[in-house]
Write a protein that binds this DNA or RNA. Structure first.
Lengths: 208, 208, 208, 208
DNA sequence: AATGAATGAGCATTCATTCAT
DNA sequence: TATGAATGAATGCTCATTCAT
């Protein structure tokens, strides 16, 4: 009578959604079984039933949040098109993403960075990095792809951590330097021409 | 008689030290007036007296933690010596730092990344970035310096967040690509030669 | 397919076994439908189905645990043999039992002592006392047998409750004093001789 | 206005009293910060402030409960008077104590027995045993004193655990057997005369 | 200036139990 | 007959903060 009880098959998903909203609004520190239960309008016990620990809930949330930037990349036509300059496309996409509402960006980074202290999140963070790298795979070598991600992370964090603003042209230039040193995985002939002709260590090992 | 009360001028410092130990051990989430009071072996009231809020304490802690990597950079002879390759030196210094005990590295990054959600920490984070950039100033242009920092942050985070290992050669290569595109502030002629000399400082400082 | 469902006639027994392991590991306080279900690797609902209340499960567990010391007594050849000194045999058997792994001993005593607050367990506890008394019946009178049990309980508890160690010689001496005062049910003539033969069975069974 | 706040110096004692009432009424299982706070009519936080953990509260409660039987022994004139038979006096005192309201007796034993699983309580339990032994010290040797306590514990537990009734004469007889074997610490000449003339191991070592 | 005592809110988690199947 | 899902109550405990010295 009071609540639409029992048999709510999407309950789990709604809890994850609520968790994302809570983290977006109040940070990971604001995430608790109680806050998420209130946000999702489900009984407290329901959150602990579906996610035995907060870490488990965070893993699910991070996995869901991951998709956002990744999807943007995957769905970008210019990123896949060898006719477009990769650095330019990446710089623009990142600008669009980071220029959106700050909460969303903060949310994703906060979840991602939480892996620093929560080993449970690390596999998911690694997954994310691999996914993004996979988007870049058709256009450059793996090591360069990883460096591109690292640089983008670093640039975005500088913006977010120092209250700075995103400078698309600066990002384009620096991405270009990284990419120019890589070996194009497929024929990538654009205005730039073959620069730094792959002579020295094109694709180094990013990790063991 | 029981405690060496009153007039303990270094108490503030001891509290900050204790806070760093607490964060190093238990993360920012583990930092509370109580835990830090216990760690510093001072009365609970003393911590709230010297630091009205936890943010205030975090600012002091971040400021103290900042020094570590910065000092390593400042004191490195090869970094200042134009005769040494900058990318190599940076890659090696970073490797030494990150190869030390994980807690120390985690501690510094955790405090630094906390600025994402705590505006009070952002000026300190910005300060840190500027300090490191200043170390690089004699050897490259400001935009490149910032990109170097961004890349290093990104690389380190990839290691820390995905349980990966640091690959010095990979770091050297990618730092080299960024640096090669910059305009050497002083004569810096090494084996690389002037690559993509065109756009020296296309888009500079993205913040403040 | 997932689980070997339905028709598992030994399930009840397996749940009792699991309950004993749980109590041994975490104490009665650690016993819950959940913990025992996890330990027995059966569905949660299965435990509530077979044992409507935890008390019911405890009764079954206590009944099973009872057997251990009792069996040791029953199977001891020297206990039954009038040629062996009873006090010596009992002291040795007790030493062997208490000298085993502490968890097992704790487990039995914990279940036994739980009867203090759980009337449901009291008949089982009484049964146990009678069983042990029955082992002693051929060699002494009932009141003495009960006193022997009481003394043994008291001695064991002193060891367990005060982190002391079991002193077999002390136990033998005190058991000897109790037994010497009893009337030998069968001819049991040893060095002691008939001491204080006056009151054979002054005050007998204090219960049921 | 709502509550007579602040500055309640006997607060700690009142909480211990309340804890004893709670354990007496509902058993140790019924003891929680909440129940004791309600019983003592103090804020919940007050209980955790004064007793950081439940174990700490239990230690305080056991220490307080200890006094009861011990005091009865200490204050008994006949126990101290060599003219009275020790076994008779002990049996009578125990009868009085156990014949009182069952809750009180259960309470003390429950706290005492809790030491089985709570190491924190063991030193207090040991203390209690020593205190009682000290009461007996003037009239018998230490080992015998310990055995007397063990026997009394065992007898009482048999009564409590099996829903039996206390048989004073039976207790007197068995205590007498133990005591008769001991060496009177002081001249103790009563009706019994020197029985089992102290030939064999009068005072053995009860523990290390 | 400094601090011990105190407190209500909140935390993650476990639980016995109920219910629909 | 058995069981997974669900839930409200309760648990021990930590906390920032307040207040009276």
């Amino acid at each position: 009578m009071a609540r639409p009880r029992r048999h709510d098959p999407e309950r789990r998903e709604r809890i994850v959604d609520a968790a994302l909203r809570v983290v977006g609004r109040a940070g990971i520190g604001g995430l608790s079984h109680r806050t998420v239960a209130a946000e999702a309008d489900v009984p407290l016990g329901s959150t602990t039933y579906h996610f035995a620990s907060l870490d488990e809930l965070l893993v699910a949330a991070l996995r869901r949040a991951n998709d956002n930037f990744g999807r943007a990349l995957r769905e970008s036509p210019e990123l896949a098109d060898p006719g477009h300059d990769l650095a330019t496309a990446l710089a623009r996409l990142t600008g669009e993403w980071i220029g959106g509402e700050r909460t969303g960006v903060e949310l994703e980074y906060e979840l991602y960075l939480a892996a620093l202290r929560r080993p449970a999140l690390r596999p998911v963070a690694a997954e994310w990095a691999e996914d993004v790298a996979a988007c870049l795979a058709p256009r450059t070598d793996p090591a360069t792809a990883r460096a591109v991600i690292a640089l983008l992370d670093g640039i975005c964090l500088q913006v977010l951590l120092t209250d700075g603003s995103y400078d698309e042209e600066y990002a384009r230039e620096m991405l270009g330097r990284i990419l120019a040193g890589g070996s194009p995985a497929t024929a990538e002939r654009s205005a730039e021409g073959p620069v730094r002709a792959s002579s020295e260590t094109p694709g180094t090992r990013p990790d063991t």
